[in-house]
Design a protein around this nucleic acid. Structure first.
Lengths: 115, 115
DNA sequence: ACTAAGGTTTCCAAATATGGAAAATGACGA
DNA sequence: TCGTCATTTTCCATATTTGGAAACCTTAGT
């Protein structure tokens, strides 16, 4: 897949708050489509479609276990997003100390969660 | 503006490769709408619309100088994008050393450019 | 004031995105 | 095989996005 296609897909997937909510749900660990749909208050068919878009953006992967389809976060794509950011934003070039500090602050703020 | 609105707008703006191309052009420094349109081979009206979406995503700012409208990259928004990434991707939590290393590698690869 | 240059907005048509309901698929278990 | 559960796909209606052309501002320059 071309890099432009990949970035189109990942940014498009991220551009809808309901899809970002699904991602946030998955940060707690893998879940089936039905569980996800129930948690975020979507019809299953709507959830299925949104999840397909997240998959197209390579933000998640699906795997069947019995009748159910489990989704989990796919982590590799974030490297490409970050690569895009560092290549296109003058801000981050030469400012790695600040970046590190910023992220550590975030860590302190977030604290506990994530598996 | 609500944070969700902001993220909707910035990710949507980034989800189109022509808009990302405009951003890449602007990485070389501020340019007028007409210059940008000519460089990327867009009609002015199309460029104007895309640029408005980049502005809505707070990726750029416009400023009038005489008859011309100059665009330049807006840097602050990347912090919010990065904040989103660090909050929603388990990958980055507790992996700041890797992140730092990755970014330094990128820096070495990119090397010279950016003002 | 007149004209032109630089952008923006409006209007139109074509393409894409979205949600819900219902039909279709796939994977068990009896 | 039959029925059921979990999910996907199809179909439909509505809404948003996009590009081009033309009309419309705004700001110089004369």
């Amino acid at each position: 897949m071309e890099n432009d296609d990949k970035l189109d897909a990942v940014f498009f997937a991220l551009s809808d708050r309901r899809r970002r909510l699904l991602l946030a749900e998955l940060a707690g660990g893998p879940q089936s489509i039905g569980e996800l749909a129930a948690r975020v208050g979507m019809k299953i068919s709507a959830a299925s479609k949104h999840i397909s878009l997240l998959e197209a953006g390579q933000l998640i992967v699906k795997s069947k276990r019995g009748k159910e389809t489990y989704c989990q976060l796919e982590l590799a794509i974030w490297q490409e997003v970050l690569s895009f950011i560092s290549m296109h934003s003058a801000f981050w070039s030469g400012r790695f100390d600040e970046l590190e500090h910023f992220l550590k602050t975030q860590e302190a703020v977030n604290g506990s969660h994530h598996s």
